[in-house]
């Protein structure tokens, strides 16, 4: 039996709330990096899916995306991914470097990696502040490849053996949708318990 299948409605709400707080901070950091370009954030979704079903979260396995991956350790464990479609990634690099046509050369890749790093650490900082938990991000890894290849490599690196995987996914997009993407948090086994203990133990009015 898998723990993640037994989440109560209250626990699901808490995970969505984590997504809200984290992604809210992450998108405002990204917006600031883009000279206050307005970014819309969609309400976070808590998905509990089988391994093959998770490919629906990333818009199909064949689309080319830029993916930044960070492993989470400290008081809680987990994995974070920042996934942006190829077109958005080019737009992002272009607007960071002030160039019309962006390329995924050494410069472009290092910009993407750094943006992903800031987005993900902003997400984690907000959660850390809210819960008082110590959360340590790893160094970021960047890949530009088929979405399925990036996503499955992250899940495999996370050694997810359970039949069902819990993913907290938040989508965001700029006003004209030139820049869009997903921020994913995959809480680890130890992570779940600690989050719930702290958040449910708090008087939330």
């Amino acid at each position: 039996m898998d723990d993640s299948q037994q989440l109560t409605p209250q626990q699901l709400d808490l995970l969505r709330e984590l997504g809200n707080i984290g992604a809210g901070n992450a998108t405002s950091a990204l917006s600031m990096m883009l000279q206050d370009r307005k970014l819309e954030m969609v309400v976070p979704e808590v998905a509990i899916l089988s391994l093959p079903e998770t490919t629906t979260l990333i818009g199909g396995p064949e689309a080319i995306v830029a993916g930044i991956y960070i492993a989470v350790s400290g008081d809680v464990d987990g994995h974070m991914a920042f996934l942006i479609p190829e077109g958005s990634a080019k737009e992002l690099v272009g607007s960071m470097l002030g160039e019309e046509s962006a390329k995924f050369d050494e410069m472009g890749c290092s910009v993407l990696e750094e943006v992903g790093n800031i987005v993900i650490t902003s997400y984690l900082n907000a959660i850390s502040e809210m819960t008082g938990l110590m959360i340590m991000p790893s160094v970021p890894g960047l890949a530009i490849d088929m979405a399925g290849a990036i996503w499955s490599s992250i899940l495999a690196g996370a050694e997810i053996l359970d039949d069902f995987i819990t993913v907290i996914k938040t989508d965001f997009a700029s006003e004209g949708k030139q820049i869009a993407g997903h921020i994913m948090l995959i809480p680890g086994k130890a992570g779940f318990g600690k989050f719930f203990k702290i958040l449910l133990g708090t008087d939330r009015g």
Partner: peptide
């Protein structure tokens, strides 16, 4: 063929898997 799945085909059947990373 999606992640973690097994499929079979006969004759002029074609089996495709997309997005093999570490898989």
């Amino acid at each position: 063929v999606n992640m973690g799945q097994i499929e079979v085909a006969r004759a002029d059947g074609v089996l495709v898997t997309v997005g093999l990373g570490s898989c």
